[in-house]
Design a protein around this nucleic acid. Structure first.
Lengths: 232, 232
DNA sequence: TCACATTTGTCCGTATGTATC
DNA sequence: AGATACATACGGACAAATGTG
């Protein structure tokens, strides 16, 4: 029913006990089935009066968390990550140039404005800097690109968050985002691609510096993090 | 412990009852925790004497299933899928040319030989044709590319399996795989890229024919499939 | 602010099917 | 072929959380 669209986000399923009697099985069986749906990103469980299993759509989150698991297992090096990110984002940007529309541009402009406001207050615009690239992918209007980029960017953001704050980095990133957005608005495809490549090259360079510094100081084993960090 | 490498595939965890008493919780709580690990691709549950929760590594499978969920929800059109597949695979092939080694070539040769053997017997080499592209990605030696391509190819294969058998298509695919492999062996990068592009263009064209034919005949709603089809 | 109904979260005990030795 | 170990499933019960009146 979820696949066919009969159940859309916001719909509320019957309670566990009701589902159990409807299907003629025990509550534990229903619970594990609901747990599967929850982990697949199709429902969330809310306690209390108006609670119960509620249809949601957090599959992109689930997908990104799967990628994060691979990263956390140490099977992906920072070099592999940045290489793949750069190559794929370049390809996606070509389609973004083809398909971008007014609302995309507005969202991107809003993003850099918010980032600049934060920087004015002396705090780094980490979330906005990450979000900028997700918005770029969305503007390509290809859901596969969106899903892939969302996952890769999430891994990059996870790695970035492991390295403390860096106001200067966020400032430079925001500036370069502004330039890329400007090229997008003006339809300067070649310039936009060059700017993106330079931008990613710089960011990746800083990442590699960071990771070698970190490797030199301590053996950060990242066991403090939860398994499912952010279900926003 | 899985992330840090203390638990590697093949390790066996204590039984549910033992884990429950170790952590001071009930069995159902342990069961749901194990279910989470199972769905995340970290363990499988085996019944019987030497059974119990066993550490495995099927995260790529979990990842691909997440993508499949998005596809099944109808959020990805066949056009978006083939476009993204073509663009990303072209990028990956560049890295495959850089990093391919003897064992990769051997695996690819083995693949086309098996495919030809099947075709000789008059049966289509569906699995081998799919596997060829996964092997190409593996030869890039970039785990992000591997994960992304594995997922995309799985979606393509899922869609392909919805359209009945087609011996001629499999024959042509195998032939073109042979040519691409030949270019790889000889290091003819430009030729290889051209061959891949032509190959994907043809396959995608057939897919679009198929899907328009299908749309004309019946409203296939794909509800017969299981939620978690292949946990090989 | 307080009580109440609803629903999930967790627990225990028990029974059964099943794979392995 | 039988014993064993284990997951799977059921029913009943209570605690905790959450929204409503």
């Amino acid at each position: 029913m979820i696949f066919s669209g009969d159940l859309t986000p916001g719909s509320r399923l019957p309670s566990e006990t009701e589902l159990a009697s409807q299907f003629g099985v025990g509550r534990q069986t229903i619970r594990e089935a609901l747990r599967l749906l929850e982990l697949s990103g199709f429902v969330i469980m809310r306690k209390g009066g108006a609670g119960g299993p509620i249809i949601v759509d957090t599959i992109l989150n689930t997908l990104a968390n799967s990628f994060l698991d691979i990263f956390r297992m140490g099977r992906i090096t920072i070099d592999e990550l940045t290489t793949a990110r750069t190559e794929i984002e370049k390809v996606v940007l070509v389609y973004t140039f083809k398909s971008i529309d007014e609302s995309d541009i507005h969202a991107l402009q809003d993003n850099v404005l918010k980032a600049k406001a934060k920087l004015e207050d002396g705090i780094q615009a980490f979330e906005e800097n990450v979000q900028f690239h997700k918005l770029l992918a969305k503007a390509s209007k290809n859901h596969v690109f969106v899903a892939v980029m969302e996952s890769i960017i999430t891994m990059v953001a996870h790695f970035r968050s492991l390295l403390g704050a860096d106001l200067a980095l966020s400032e430079r990133a925001t500036l370069e985002h502004t330039q890329i957005l400007d090229a997008l608005v003006k339809g300067q495809k070649k310039l936009g691609l060059e700017l993106l490549e330079k931008h990613l090259l710089y960011i990746d360079g800083r990442f590699k510096e960071f990771s070698s510094e970190q490797a030199a100081t301590a053996s950060n084993n990242d066991l403090s993090g939860t398994l499912r960090p952010d279900e926003s």
